[in-house]
Nucleic acid binder design. Structure first.
Length: 407
DNA sequence: CTTCCACCGGAAGTACCGGTAA
DNA sequence: TTACCGGTACTTCCGGTGGAAG
């Protein structure tokens, strides 16, 4: 039997600690969301006007990561559209995660697709799509609700044009009406918005607070009962996972932790999930997040990160933009590429900073100019570990360590 | 007090790509 | 086929700017 066969056979025959892992996945939304009853009611109270044939207010939802904004919204909308359908109200909603649809055009196409229109991913002018949407609306629907999740990504990339268009659209529609929901965890989001858009978007505001430890425990208990087989998970382990995630009140992290702990238990052939597994899981989850972020970076940004890693390894002086540019250009020349302008490198650095990989402060050295001092927020070893998996990067990196002397 | 360094970061422009419609 | 559309990735241009040196 081959190694592969053996692995698969083992998976089939071996008892897993899981009954059904899907209850611990990000996509699963339970019918009951513990400790979000208030928010659910708030939202439902606003949206219920659809059932009374009147347009609900636009809603702005704000709260940190993993506080249930998306789950609450999806849950309420699901129930609402069930009721609306039974009552014969022609209501439709479009859910857009702006992290993945971050240009005006793509967001618009997503709305069109949710309305059942078949639209090419590119090639058409914006106003054509807008008029297709309005026609479809007028013909088929009384209410449209557009949910812009992680709306800050859309606005930062493409401005608030599309939001403005949507808020204005109502005056052009006769038989249909549109409402918007904007969801964000960015505290400073309001600053990016045009005043008109901001005021119309936040007709109603719902704020989500982080979960505390007991609340997280309740959430995990609910999920664990569904996802794990009877008696395989220690209460202790659940409490521990809740405690870790309570540091930032993030329920998504808590649920991830439990799932990974279960996977680790399975892998090591244990029949129970213990605190120990959760401890291991918390390290693994952390590593995976970093690995995921770095590995999907565009090649140029990976190379830039390599340059920063090299610099932080061998110079005890502060890392400045100028030095980074110097080393980065060297790397590019090694692989036969043209140097890249400082302006663009600044953009790279800004992106790495928003991802939390680096941090920086602008410092003035008087006569010696003003520059950014860059600091890695992740241990160099981890970055080396991830990037030097690629033989090309590995070779470049050791060459870099050997040859570059701080300028 | 003025200078001037070494950048910062907004705005606009260029080049190329994959796509549509006629 | 051609004219046009929007996305992506980058460049060019350029008006700032904190604070030690002069």
């Amino acid at each position: 039997m081959s190694v592969l066969d053996e692995l698969f056979e083992q998976a089939l025959s071996k008892k897993s600690v899981f009954r059904d892992k899907k209850y611990l996945s990000v996509d699963y939304i339970p019918d009951e969301l513990p400790h979000r009853e208030e928010e659910i009611l708030r939202l439902a109270n606003i949206l219920v006007s659809i059932l009374r044939d009147s347009r609900p207010s636009n809603i702005f939802e704000y709260g940190p990561v993993g506080t249930g904004k998306t789950a609450v919204t999806k849950l309420v909308l699901k129930k609402l559209s069930e009721k609306a359908e039974k009552a014969g109200i022609r209501f439709r909603y479009a859910y857009i995660n702006c992290r993945f649809f971050r240009t005006n055009y793509r967001a618009l196409v997503k709305v069109a697709m949710e309305l059942g229109l078949r639209i090419p991913r590119t090639g058409l002018p914006v106003d054509v799509i807008l008029s297709l949407i309005t026609r479809k609306l007028e013909e088929n629907y009384r209410f449209l609700l557009v949910v812009f999740d992680e709306i800050d990504w859309l606005v930062k990339y493409s401005g608030d044009d599309i939001l403005y268009q949507f808020t204005r659209l109502n005056s052009e529609l006769n038989k249909s009406e549109i409402s918007l929901i904007g969801i964000t965890n960015d505290t400073r989001f309001r600053e990016y918005l045009d005043a008109r858009v901001l005021s119309s978007l936040s007709e109603e505001t719902v704020v989500f607070q982080p979960y505390n430890q007991e609340q997280l425990y309740d959430i995990l208990l609910q999920r664990a009962r569904l996802a794990f087989r009877e008696g395989v998970i220690d209460d202790e382990a659940i409490r521990y996972a809740a405690a870790i995630a309570a540091r930032d009140g993030d329920a998504r992290r808590a649920i991830d932790l439990l799932r990974v702990a279960g996977e680790i238990a399975d892998r090591s052939g244990d029949f129970k999930v213990t605190v120990d597994h959760v401890v291991q899981a918390s390290e693994e989850v952390e590593r995976n997040i970093i690995r995921e972020i770095i590995s999907i970076l565009p090649p140029n940004q990976q190379l830039l990160l390599l340059a920063i890693a090299g610099l932080s390894k061998l110079s005890r002086n502060k890392i400045t933009t100028g030095k980074v540019k110097h080393v980065f250009d060297w790397i590019l020349s090694q692989i036969g590429k043209q140097p890249i302008t400082l302006r663009r490198i600044n953009d790279y650095l800004a992106e790495l900073e928003t991802l939390g990989i680096i941090s920086s402060t602008i410092v003035s050295f008087g006569r010696h100019g003003r520059t950014r001092i860059i600091k890695l927020e992740i241990p160099v070893e981890i970055i080396e570990n991830i990037l030097t998996k690629d033989p090309l990067y590995s070779e470049l990196y050791s060459e870099l360590i050997r040859t570059i002397i701080s300028p």
